[in-house]
Design a binder for these strands. Structure first.
Lengths: 352, 352
DNA sequence: CACAGGTCGGAGAGCGCTCTCCGACCTGTG
DNA sequence: CACAGGTCGGAGAGCGCTCTCCGACCTGTG
């Protein structure tokens, strides 16, 4: 024990369990037991160990621990992008969209309390997917949350085949026995249809997202079905890609083809913002001439002028639920494959 | 060798280097050398090893490798929030803001190509900080990118003291020998001042962010200095907290105190959106009665009505540079502490 | 008092890799 | 032919932990 600080230096390297054991005068096993609170340990030894920990400034090496316990305290968030390649500008757009941040925020609200960290990985190529699954089987992470992007994606099936605990946010494009959390997108679209018809719209169009995204196709199906029930057999539709520019372009197109349009359902708020721009440019009043309903209830909805009537998407809650579901699955390998579906609500503002 | 697939199963567990060595008929060391491409290996052995790898489906265990190489292929992104606690709703707002996503996108654009994953961690309490630094000293991650939030934050100093490779996005609040990437916030504010004075504004106000955020105080200082040079000794100022609502409130306040105000510089686009709302509510035309300049050039700037004249902030580029800087530092422990400052530009739209 | 049954600390193997060191062999030069 | 110098594969230690197994000791009961 030095007079200066009581610190016991152990050379250049960091103190290990071995060092603590030597200083406390006990075995490595005992130190491990005290640190991890496993089994009763004599109160006197207990104190001697903690004293030695304080004097050395010992911090367990998580890597070494994980190697034997097969638990890492890490969950992987994988953005699976089966169609793009490295340096695809698409990823930039994806991250700038609040969608990504809201998902991360929801996941972290649960994981943070549990002391679990989130490891972000983007996989695009076949090789990256194979490597990811290999790493996960080795326990590189305890489980994985998958954010699926447009297109056919083999990753969900690969994960379930490998027996890796996994949860998707948004249902898989094709049937795969994987856990997921989703929004009742069709119900949300129905709410929009009800609202537009309810305010007396006669010719209602739709600006949709890409048809190969499940959330998008569900919104299309739900909207058309509901409109048909209200007697509107024909719903003109233009497809965008969820960006503001594509919404603006789509609105112009819709307006050119159907000048008497008096209502439009836009599959996300960002495109709705673009639609608003196009309507203003075309000299149409919103909602006077054309009523607009968005989807997501993002911060853009409030910022818009007029403020957007939209469908609320409790994304943070969904992500938090995904985290809880995954943690349950990690602790119980026999958990049956389950899904949790959230109900959307209509938020009425000025645009419709 | 089985007739079915040529796969050699090795029981329940995953194949290890040992299994590959046995099947290839060489030593573990040789397999390791072939897999990692270290030293020349006899072409014949080389082939036998790769054949064995294919037959077993071997994937190296990254954890075990990291334990000895002291390299993990992971970089930590830490959001240091010295003032909040777990479950603070503030974090929700933080993640929903495009700022977070743009930083992640910029980092990943560089890290993805290098096959490095990003591990997200939020630290709030003293204990969490200590544990993080301990884990990092053990090589839990090869380096760390720090996103600092309002307030005095001890983390940067703790990291440099521990010798952990680190880069901040945005300068530290107080002098610390840490690498960082930043925007010339004062220059950006000057550009706004020049523009407002240049279009003939006589009474110009400012809506600022919290003074304890470096980016914010730099914008305040740059703006006041530049206005003074233009002969405007007095600049009324109200402080917001970067949210839209706070911008709206601040604008109302400014207008109440200075009804003849004809120009305003708002320290970020989100608050500028709020200011626009307040001006409309007060019956002022933008830019006719009051000219508005924002900051960030976020997607909200284009969506606003009128579209915002604002200061462009190349955040993705800055984050990408931070990643490069960090990777250089990881490979060269002797690298001198460095900073990279980006120059902002004025983007002229309708609001000023 | 004898002995069954429980409690608790230590020894040592093991997780799956890398890396140093050594020795076998091979080549070229005087 | 002798020997210096280089190349390359294998043995075995080591990274820093956990966990099983065993034996010492302690308690309580018939």
């Amino acid at each position: 024990m030095t007079a200066t600080s009581g610190r016991v230096p152990v050379g250049e390297r960091l103190p290990t369990l071995e060092d603590v054991a030597r200083i406390a005068g006990v075995s490595r096993a005992t130190v491990s037991r005290v640190i991890n609170g496993i089994r009763n340990v004599d109160p006197q030894l207990h104190k001697m160990v903690w004293d030695a920990v304080d004097r050395t400034g010992y911090v367990p090496n998580r890597l070494a621990r994980s190697l034997v316990t097969r638990r890492t305290g890490t969950i992987a968030l994988v953005v699976s992008d089966s169609e793009s390649h490295d340096d695809d500008p698409f990823m930039g757009r994806f991250f700038a969209d609040p969608y990504f941040g809201r998902v991360v925020g929801g996941l972290m609200s649960v994981l943070r309390a549990a002391g679990i960290q989130l490891a972000l990985q983007i996989v695009g190529t076949e090789q990256q997917r194979t490597r990811l699954v290999g790493d996960l089987r080795h326990g590189q992470a305890d489980g994985v949350v998958v954010l699926s992007l447009p297109g056919h994606d083999p990753l969900p099936r690969m994960l379930t085949d490998a027996g890796v605990p996994a949860v998707m946010i948004g249902r898989p494009a094709e049937p795969v026995p994987i856990n997921y959390v989703d929004l009742a997108n069709d119900t949300g679209a129905s709410l929009a249809a009800d609202h537009l018809v309810g305010r007396g719209c006669q010719l209602v169009g739709m600006i949709s997202g890409p048809a190969d995204v499940p959330a998008s196709s569900d919104r299309i199906a739900g909207f058309r079905r509901s409109m048909a029930r209200h007697g509107h057999a024909w719903v003109p539709q233009v497809t965008g890609n969820f960006t503001q520019e594509s919404g603006e372009r789509a609105m112009h197109e819709l307006l050119a083809a159907h000048p008497t349009l008096d209502g439009v359902f836009v599959a996300n708020d960002l495109m709705a913002l673009g639609a608003l721009l196009a309507l203003r440019a075309a000299g149409r009043e919103v909602p006077g001439d054309v009523a607009v309903v968005g989807f997501d209830d993002s911060s853009a909805a409030v910022a818009a002028n007029p403020a957007l009537t939209t469908i609320r998407h409790p994304l943070e809650d969904m992500a938090a639920e995904a985290a809880r579901l995954l943690m349950t699955r990690i602790d119980d390998a026999a958990m049956r494959v389950s899904s949790v579906i959230y109900e959307p609500t209509l938020v009425r503002r000025q645009s419709a």
